[in-house]
Design a protein around this nucleic acid. Structure first.
Lengths: 343, 343
DNA sequence: TAATCAAGGCCGACATCAGTT
DNA sequence: AAACTGATGTCGGCCTTGATT
């Protein structure tokens, strides 16, 4: 059993020899820095074609101390938001011929001990000479990771400004606030909130927005904590904790949790919006197909991903200073909300 | 506006100088090839710590013509299956300290003209000296991509064996077949199939399995084609095409399509399993929270991702020959299926 | 003989600078 | 002076060889 035979790829020298020029000229052909005559250019192009030559990026990386690569550290599962964010990052990276090195650490962030693993991943990225790093999961404890990364250009997905890094985030507080306001404006007073995983900044922000909106009206807040993930199971579990008399409306930390909540309530014969109103957060494509179609806060994760990449790229290539930006959510009204007692 | 100041990282030479040894000794310290005395080892470790030294991976890559990196080309959206697959790949890669370079091309595979973009992405990966490539989306036309990649170790996610590459896939035909059999065994005879995007091999496999099962019983097949993606909208659209008298049961190409179908039927006052039975494919976590809980074919994409990586790694490090493997689906019975006319 | 370490060359592309027309 | 090309050195680890204890 032996390793696969090394592929003997042609080098610039081979191309040069075949084209009857020096390898430096071939290098100029590729980089565009310096003159290459039309005649020479044609011969080089032909030689490249004949040999099936392809530039060795690793050699270039070493020489230039630049890889045109950014590292993306995605902590936790690839749920809707993170997947969309990755899509946005990918698209923007492709526009400027950058490559994404994605490390997904599917760790339980609610448990302890995920940090060493994350630090190892960052260490590997730094070794690989990535030009910048995106820390794509807002989570308690990210500050320590950012310190390690600095002074490399860094962006963290976060709602609050950071010292070491540019930060970009959805405005989770606004999402929670606006969702709650929507229900209050419909006339609901007993509104509860089903929170997301407690170590996630996004979950905390949404809960805070809910609390602020309730406080504004002088109404008591009631938050169901205890979600271990962003899944429907958490919504089902939360529904089990509540009695129908406890509330007339619910704001859930995201759409999937809303689905689980709806499903459990339906098992008890309670359907929205007849028996209660419900608002989710995210506006996943499937939310429009829930029964009833879900009113929710749209978060444009994809655009955010694109913007994140562009800001990081600006830091890398133009030395722009760290800054902060948030993306506002939008209320999407569907069938799951109505005034209380509308039946 | 100038580019960010280059970070002057220490090199092995700096470490060597500080530790009072030669850089070759420091290299041995890292690679483990050759002797390094305990005394020297300790001094080197200290110097590394003092300087905050980190190995430059790009230099190593160049010298060794090996990057411990594999490229992953993900065509189309990051839907449930592909996201789970990535998670499996990531996990297995981490076990052996490999890095994933993921290129997600969010192209419309139903449209023409996506191939050049895919070829460019592959070209970039080959330039970066990846040790192997995973083509993670089963799609019509992948053969041409595989030819370009060869003779680099390659795995494609596919249900059928390939000439150039190892292939691993879910058994979509079996999924379609078993889902249909389940309905037939319950006593249904008018069973229709809502197909997925037609350029996807998985969609075709599932449809074929459905047809085979129907043919086996001498029953006429009816397939609703026309889905442009794997989303719930496709299911809703399909439901609009059908009259209630057309069928007593449905097999949808995946769970999301089933959700859209359920939602549209409910709008017409028809609910499963009272008025019709329905089976999905994938067993997304949310499927258990649909109303009714969805009977579906579980596809273990995550394990498949892990296995894919391991097979590719075996090819890379031990020169194993291309082979083929499929992962069987499992029927998960929930509340959406019942004998016909069970109401 | 085994353990330990250093000197020099090499991977492949690119920058610099010198040289030619 | 402008257009064009080639020789040499460099990026930073790692391998080979050989010397010393």
């Amino acid at each position: 059993m032996s390793a696969a035979a090394p592929l003997d790829r042609p080098t610039m020298g081979d191309v040069a020899e075949r084209a009857g020029v020096s390898k430096q000229t071939v290098s100029r052909f590729f980089t565009g820095r310096g003159y290459v005559g039309d005649d020479t250019r044609a011969r080089i192009a032909e030689a490249i074609d004949d040999l099936g030559y392809r530039r060795n990026q690793t050699a270039s990386n070493l020489r230039l101390s630049r890889t045109d690569t950014i590292g993306v550290l995605a902590l936790g599962g690839l749920v809707y938001g993170s997947a969309e964010l990755l899509t946005g990052l990918s698209r923007a990276a492709r526009d400027v011929e950058f490559t994404l090195v994605i490390t997904q650490l599917d760790l339980d962030l609610e448990a302890v001990g995920w940090e060493p693993e994350a630090l190892r991943a960052i260490d590997r990225m730094l070794s690989s000479q990535v030009d910048g790093i995106v820390l794509s999961t807002p989570v308690q404890g990210e500050e320590r990771l950012l310190e390690v990364i600095s002074p490399l250009p860094t962006i963290t997905v976060s709602e609050r400004p950071h010292v070491f890094a540019t930060s970009v985030g959805t405005d989770s507080r606004a999402a929670g606030y606006l969702a709650t306001r929507h229900l209050l404006d419909l006339g609901h007073e007993r509104v509860v909130h089903v929170a997301g995983p407690r170590t996630r900044n996004e979950a905390r922000g949404r809960a805070q927005g809910y609390r602020d909106a309730m406080a504004e009206r002088g109404l008591p807040a009631r938050v169901v904590e205890g979600a271990r993930d962003w899944g429907a199971g958490s919504g089902q579990w939360a529904a089990v904790q509540l009695r129908a008399s406890d509330f007339t409306a619910v704001v859930t930390a995201n759409d999937e949790i809303a689905l689980g909540f709806l499903s459990e309530m339906r098992a008890r014969g309670l359907v929205a919006p007849r028996d209660f109103s419900i608002v989710g957060v995210d506006d996943m494509p499937i939310a429009a197909h829930f029964s009833p179609a879900l009113t929710t806060m749209r978060m444009d994760f994809r655009s955010m991903g694109e913007e994140i990449f562009r800001m990081l790229h600006a830091q890398i290539t133009r030395g722009e200073q760290p800054s902060h930006r948030t993306f506002p959510p939008t209320l999407i009204e569907r069938a799951s909300t109505a005034p209380p007692g509308a039946a």
